[in-house]
Structure formats: C-alpha cells, structure tokens
Design a protein around this nucleic acid. Structure first.
Lengths: 236, 236
DNA sequence: ACGGTAGGTGTACGGTGTACACCTGTCAAG
DNA sequence: CTTGACAGGTGTACACCGTACACCTACCGT
C-alpha cells in the first residue's frame, strides 16, 4: 500500500512484458508491424523506455524468437533417434506455424542465443544418442539446415497478398497457361500437382507434405551413413 | 553532334546502369548500403530519378538478383541428369558466392521474375529429362529448397563482424570451453570439426563441403525414388 | 514550327532506430 | 529521518529512409 500513487495505473514494464507484447502484435499484424515506436505506444510508454529492457531492435527480435523456441516440445527420449529427431523438428514446425512471422525472423537473425544453442545442442544429443559420431552429427545437422526450425523456403507458393483481389478461377487458369510456352516444365509440375485442374493452382502446395518428404529423405540418408560408419575424417 | 550540350557530361541513366551500379555497390559495401538516396548520389542524380527506371526498392532488389542469376552457367545437357543438376546448382553457388549479399536478397525476395522462373524451369527440365515424373520432380525441387540457389543457412558459423577485433586463439578457446557444461554436444561437434584444437573454432566450417554433402545426399535419395517409380499420387 | 512525352528535378511527408540529457520515485545505508 | 545512488520512464533531437506529387526541360516525330 506504500506505492498506491503511480503503481496501480500501469503494470510495470518488463523485458518479459515487452517481448510478449511484441509477439502478440506480430502474431496479429505481421513482423512488419513491429516498430519500437508502435510497440511503445501499445505499452502506453514512450519509445525510449523500451531501451531500458532491450538493447536495440535486433535484440528485441532475438528475444521474440527465443519465446517461440520455448514453445518447442521437450525431448521425449524414450524414442528411437529417428523418431526423436523427427518429433522435435515437427514440434518446432508446429510452433513456427503458430507464429507465421517467426520464419522470416529466424532467417534474418544471426545471434545464437542460449535458447537457440540449447535447442541445437539437444538435437545434436539425439543424434549422438542414436549412435552417430560427433563428426557425422555435425554434417548431418548442416544438411538439415533451416529444416531444424521446421520450415523450408516456399519455392512455388505465391506469397499471399491480403490486399490483392481474389482472382477468379478463370483468371488463374489464364495466367497459368501463359507459362506454357515459356516455362513448359513448371507448367507440367503445376498440372501434376493439381491433377490437371489449373484453376486450383492458387491453392499452393501441401507444405506439410513437402516438409516431411524432404525430412524423411534426409533422415533415411543419415541412417544409411550411420550404418556404414561414414566419416569425413582426413579431408582438407 | 546535335546534343553536345548536356549529353557528354553524364552518361544517360538506364535501368541496366542503375542495376549494375547497385550490384557493384552491394558487392563492395553489403546489401545494407543499398538505399535509393545513396544509389542516386553515386549515379550523380537526384533520388527520384531512379523511379523512372525502377518501380520501387523491391523491384530494384529483384533486378539485382536477376543480374546474379544471369551469371549462372547455361545448362550443359550432354550430362547425365545428376551431373547436370549438380553442375547447375554448384554454378549457382559460385555466382552467389561472388555476390555475398545475394544470399540474403534471394531469401527476402518473394517475386518470381522471368529470370527466376527460367532457372527453375530449366532445372526442372533436367530432372524430367533424366526420367523423373512431373510429380516426383515437383517434390524433389521442394526438397532441394534454397539449395537450388547454391546456399544453405550457416547454422554454426559466426557471422563475420568486420568491426570486431580479431579474437586471440586463447580467447577463442576460452569462449569455446564455456560451452562445455551447457552445450556438451555442440562442444563435441566443435572438437570433432577442429581435430580437438578448439583455437581453430573461429575458422568456421567448410561450407563448400557441407553444401556438397547435403546436395549429394539428396541427389542419391532422389535417384533411389526415381528408380522405384515413387509417386505421391492419391494423397489428399 | 509544334505538341507530346520520356526523363531528370525539388519539395515534402510520414515513417524509422536510437543517442543523450533529464527527471522521478524507490530503497538502502548512514 | 535524511541522503544519495540508481533503476526506470521522459523529451528532444538527429540522421536517415522510401516515395508521392508537381514541375521543368530537352528531345522527337509530325
């Protein structure tokens, strides 16, 4: 009761509160809506106040990504290595899909925070526990690349532009057919992916399937290398 | 001789000239140095003049990426499909390494320009010509992901900070050892990668090797699927 | 000779991140 | 009880950004 004057009117700013607010804002309005000024306003505070809890905007982004990483499921180590890696990566994917901005944020981040390192370390531990040498574990994690975060770049999908008018099926088909002479192979692929119904080309690919396709292809390849005792030793 | 008055003093602005200047600037000073204002100044022109040749900054970036794509080697179709894909992707890698900013630019771009589509189409053509069904070609290109551009994210490497003082070998070793209790598996990997000499940890990974490792792993997996006539048909 | 037009100019607006000096309320030590 | 340090919120200011819009000017084909 000593601090009733100013304390009740505004919850105290906190690094935690700043980051959570930023995540909520990005969830609702996209990563582009994150600005120190806008965030400060949402928190009922002057922009510079944020800098008492976050070094700069880059660190803010890093902190937001860390919050997403905290949502990853903990390892369930009763599993066989392949299932464990698979489960952890797919769990990462689920978290990243919950926060659509995270994909871009992770790609643009370079700092490895303790949360990032912790995740990578535990994933490496899954390989090691499954009989992978440290050497093979190293290369194998490189091969997974960004897939350890649960996403791959969308090579074919149109980036959804919320302001664009919904194109008619006919317009989509017309556009697709324009490719025919110039990009015959892409057309072929589009035909195969839509069962020949080019009006469905706007539906995009089944990202989840593509993700698991590549993931399993890699995991099977890893398994083979592990079984033959593959190593890159003595290579310049 | 009719236009001697103003023509000789300044080469006329051109979309080509704008893009080439931007690429040269990015090569020298990084993608962060690309601003409409700075670019205009370098061209001896007022900022808004650029907009007569380029719709906006996004299109400028797209155009720069297109110039990099133009450096990719043309297909050498005497080759077997695997060698051809391998060669084209590694050629893309060479071009991207020549322009270090391109990696980030490609990742942040979403527009598919004719140059982008043309490259993807011809890569798809290599698979098709090698006996891949359109269906399998589709999934296989998704699996390659950003690797078709010749790069993978650097999971372990420290982003080189040109302003940072060069750390001593002893300092590097001390830093590395701090990880020991917290990140034992990453430490293991670092040990394996440096032959136990942690002072060499700053040298980073052999990106070229890691790239080819993953690429070949995937290509071999693709080959297996092709041989068994794999298809995703009849899958919701 | 003349009107249209492509291309370069100048000004202006609303946004950004953040450096720096300042104030203010809380709390521990004297 | 006083005091003084200090964490945390404030206000102002700067340098930069992309780009909308109106303008001007020099060339061109008619």
């Amino acid at each position: 009761m000593a601090q009733q004057t100013g304390a009740a009117r505004r919850a105290p700013l906190t690094r935690e509160r700043v980051l959570r607010t930023a995540v909520a804002r990005a969830d609702a309005a996209g990563i582009g809506s994150i600005s120190m000024r806008g965030l400060a306003q949402e928190l009922g505070v002057v922009p510079m106040a944020l800098y008492k809890h976050v070094a700069n905007k880059d660190e803010l982004l890093d902190g937001m990504v860390d919050l997403v990483i905290e949502e990853f499921d903990p390892p369930a180590d009763a599993l066989d290595w392949k299932d464990e890696v698979r489960e952890r990566v797919l769990s990462a994917r689920r978290a990243v899909l919950r926060h659509p901005w995270a994909r871009l944020a992770i790609e643009s981040r370079t700092r490895r925070t303790p949360a990032v390192l912790g995740y990578m370390d535990s994933l490496a531990g899954a390989f090691r526990g499954g009989g992978f040498s440290a050497n093979l574990t190293h290369h194998v994690m490189h091969a997974l690349g960004n897939r350890i975060w649960g996403f791959t770049p969308e090579l074919f999908d149109e980036p959804a532009d919320p302001d664009a008018p919904p194109p008619t099926a006919a317009a989509q088909e017309a556009t697709a057919r324009q490719f025919a002479e110039r990009y015959p192979h892409i057309l072929e692929i589009a035909m195969a992916a839509t069962d020949g119904d080019l009006s469905r080309v706007g539906e995009g690919c089944d990202e989840q399937f593509e993700f698991e396709f590549a993931l399993d292809l890699l995991l099977d390849g890893f398994d083979r290398l592990r079984a033959e005792g593959w190593t890159s030793r003595r290579r310049p």
